[in-house]
Simulated assay, not measured.
Amino acid sequence: MAGQTDQLVRPGSGRGLLDVFGDRFLLKLLVRKEIKVRYRGSVLGLLWSYVKPLVQFLIYFVALGVFLDLQRGTPNYAIYLFAGIVLVNFFTECLSNATRSIVDNRDLIRKIYLPRELFPVATVWVSAAHFLPQLLVLVGACLVVGWTPSILQLAAAVLIFLMVAVLATGLGLIFGAINVYFRDSENIVDMIVMVVTWASPVLYVWTMVENVMGSWFWVYQLNPMTVAVEVFHWVFWEPTLNAEQLTIETIPPGLLTVWLPIAMMISLGLLFLGQLTFRRLAVHFAQEL
Rank of each mutant, 00 (worst) to 15 (best):
M1L: 02
A2G: 01
A2C: 00
G3C: 00
Q4Y: 07
R10F: 00
G12V: 03
G14K: 06
G22E: 14
K28G: 14
V37F: 04
L46I: 04
L47G: 15
S49C: 12
K52F: 06
L58Q: 02
T74E: 04
Y77F: 12
L81Q: 10
L81E: 09
L81C: 03
L87D: 11
F91K: 07
N97D: 15
R110F: 04
I112T: 10
P115M: 06
R116A: 04
L118C: 09
F119G: 07
V121G: 11
A122W: 03
V124E: 11
V126I: 04
S127F: 05
L136T: 02
L138K: 13
L143N: 10
W147K: 09
T148A: 15
P149L: 05
S150Q: 13
A155G: 15
L162N: 06
V164L: 02
G172P: 08
N179H: 06
V180L: 03
V189D: 02
V193I: 06
V196N: 06
W198T: 06
W198H: 11
L203F: 15
Y204I: 01
V205A: 11
N223P: 09
E230R: 10
V231K: 12
P239K: 05
I248V: 09
E249Q: 15
T257A: 14
T257E: 15
I266S: 09
I266R: 07
I266H: 09
L271P: 11
L273M: 11
L273W: 09
A282H: 03
H284V: 03
E288R: 03
